[in-house]
C-alpha cells in the first residue's frame, strides 16, 4: 500500500481505514446506485457493482486513501456501465424523443414522477447520462466529472447544459399535457 511519509500509528490508522470489507460496506450503495440509475436494471447493476468491488480487491494495494478509493470506484463503475451498455446494448429506452410522456403530477416527491424522470435520464446517450448521474446522484462538480470520465471540463459543462435543457423541455411538455388533460 502506498503509505509514503506515513509512519507508526498514523500508518496503522490509514491501513485499518482502507481495509477491503470497510470500503465495501461504506461504498456499496454508491457503486450499486451508479449501476442502477445508469442501467435501470437491478440485476445488471448488482453484477456491475460486484465486478467493480472484485477489481478493487485486486488493486487494493494501489489505493492511498478513502478519497482515492471513492474516486477510483466512481471511475471504474462509470467505465463499466458505459462499456456494458455499448457491449450488450442494454439501453432500456430508445431515443429520448421517442419516450412516451406520462401524465404530469405537481408533487415533487411523487414516485411516479421520479420514475418518469429516471426514464428520461435513461434515454440520454451514455456519456450525457453518466454526467447527469454523477452530477445529481454523487453531487459532483463539472471538473470532478471531467477527471472521472477523462474528458475536458468544457465538454462536460456544455454536454450537461444540453442534457438539462432536453430534460427541462420534456418535463415542461409533460406539465403542459398534464394540465390540458
Amino acid at each position: 500500500m502506498a503509505l509514503a511519509g506515513t509512519t507508526g500509528w498514523a500508518a496503522e490508522a490509514v491501513a485499518a481505514a482502507l481495509s477491503f470489507p470497510d470500503l465495501l460496506r461504506n461504498h456499496q450503495s454508491m457503486v450499486f446506485s451508479i449501476g442502477l440509475h445508469f442501467l435501470r436494471d437491478r440485476a445488471a447493476a448488482e453484477e456491475i457493482a460486484q465486478d467493480v468491488f472484485l477489481e478493487l480487491h485486486r488493486h487494493i494495494g494501489e489505493i492511498e486513501s478513502d478519497a482515492h478509493a471513492i474516486f477510483w470506484l466512481r471511475k471504474v463503475a462509470s467505465r463499466k456501465c458505459i462499456d456494458a451498455v455499448r457491449r450488450r446494448k442494454l439501453r432500456v429506452a430508445a431515443a429520448l424523443e421517442s419516450v412516451p410522456e406520462p401524465a404530469a403530477r405537481e408533487d415533487r416527491t411523487d414516485p411516479m414522477l421520479n420514475r418518469r424522470l429516471q426514464q428520461l435520464i435513461a434515454a440520454l446517450p451514455e456519456r450525457p447520462r453518466m454526467m447527469v448521474l454523477l452530477r445529481y446522484q454523487e453531487d459532483l462538480m463539472p471538473d470532478e466529472i471531467a477527471r472521472i470520465l477523462e474528458i475536458p471540463v468544457g465538454t462536460v459543462k456544455s454536454t450537461l447544459q444540453r442534457a438539462l435543457g432536453v430534460l427541462k423541455e420534456k418535463l415542461n411538455r409533460l406539465n403542459g399535457e398534464g394540465r390540458r388533460g
Binding site: A45, Y136, L167, G176
Partner: peptide, 22 residues
C-alpha cells in the same frame, strides 16, 4: 411546472437520483 426553473429541476433530479442500497 411551467417555466421549470433550474433550482426545481435540480431538486427533482437529486430526488430521482437518490442512492439506493444493493
Amino acid at each position: 411546472m411551467d417555466n421549470l426553473d433550474r433550482l426545481l429541476l435540480d431538486r427533482l433530479l437529486k430526488e430521482a437520483m437518490r442512492r439506493q442500497d444493493p
